[in-house]
Amino acid sequence: MKTLTFYFSLLSPWVYMAGPRLHELAAETGTRIVYRPIDLLRVFRETGGAPLAGLHPSRRAYRAVERRRWARYLDMPIKEQPRHHPVDETRAACAVLAAERAGLAVWPLAQAILAGVWVRDLDISDAGTLACIADEAGYPGRALVAEGGTAPCRDLFEAHTQEALAQGVFGVPSFVIDGELFFGQDRLDFVRRALVAD
């Protein structure tokens, strides 16, 4: 069984669109996914990237076109520009880490949070909103948000971000297989090849 380390942000439309296909691919190939939520805005700062608001207007416009193209292609709803984006994703990421530490499935919660941003126009930095998203997805929302605020979860979020930077991650979604980095939801075909290679 191969292992894929998945570096992701709960702010990214590309992670929102990649998630379902990645998990279908993992099921098909018998791949184990190691989840690594990271602080995307910090990664941008430390690797010379720019958040959406800091991009030249032509780059922002083209990214919007690409979001629409991919959303139509994948038949996934998406907001043109969510009101609550970007926000501090620490609370949301730490709630996901709290779920993992409790032995709960990571991805249904993460995908629900991503849809909260990109479909439902919700503020995932708000504790009550985040708890509600988790509850609706079948998780103990208030407990996860509370646990996510503790030092172990925050330290883990920091460690994952540091690990991502050490692995050469500069954006999301990023996937590492046998030490090889793949960046972008449009690289899943290459991810597949790496997973089925002998």
Rank of each mutant, 00 (worst) to 15 (best):
R101P: 02
P86S: 01
E163I: 00
G168M: 07
M1G: 13
D135G: 12
R21C: 02
V34Y: 02
R42M: 13
Y7L: 07
L10D: 06
L122S: 00
R83V: 11
E163H: 05
K79Y: 07
F6E: 09
A61V: 02
R68N: 08
Q162I: 06
V176A: 01
Q81C: 01
V34F: 03
F190Q: 12
K79L: 15
H56D: 14
R42G: 14
L165Y: 01
L40G: 07
W70N: 13
H84W: 15
F183L: 15
K79V: 12
V119K: 10
L97F: 05
D189S: 14
Y16F: 15
P86R: 00
T31A: 14
D198S: 14
I133V: 15
R21D: 07
W14Q: 03
A134Q: 02
R36D: 03
L52K: 01
H85G: 03
R63Y: 05
E66I: 09
V172S: 13
K2T: 06
R21E: 11
G103P: 14
P140K: 12
S58W: 10
H160I: 07
A131R: 09
L55F: 03
A71V: 05
A99V: 02
G48H: 11
G148D: 04
A146K: 11
Y62E: 06
F170V: 04
L55W: 07
T29R: 09
L74S: 11
E80F: 10
I177E: 03
R60M: 11
R60P: 08
A53S: 10
D178H: 08
V96T: 09
E46D: 12
G49A: 04
D75W: 00
A71M: 08
C94A: 11
C132H: 14
L104Q: 14
L144K: 10
E158W: 00
W107D: 10
P173G: 07
R101K: 14
A131V: 05
Q111P: 01
D123N: 15
E89G: 11
G148A: 10
F170G: 04
G179A: 08
M17H: 05
E147D: 12
L109F: 09
V117R: 04
A98C: 11
P37E: 00
R69T: 13
A194Y: 00
L181Q: 08
A50H: 14
L22H: 11
P20K: 06
H85R: 08
A50Q: 14
E80V: 01
Y35R: 01
R69P: 13
R60I: 10
Q185M: 15
I38H: 00
I33H: 04
D186K: 00
D178W: 05
S174I: 04
S174R: 02
E147W: 04
L10R: 00
A50N: 12
Y7P: 06
G184H: 13
E66G: 06
Y35T: 04
A151V: 07
A110V: 15
R193C: 04
I78L: 13
E136S: 14
A143R: 13
W118Q: 02
L181I: 12
A92P: 13
P77S: 02
M1Y: 08
T5Q: 13
R68Q: 14
A26G: 08
L114R: 08
L22K: 06
Q185F: 02
V87P: 09
V176W: 00
A164M: 04
R59D: 05
A92R: 00
H85Y: 15
F6A: 08
D39A: 07
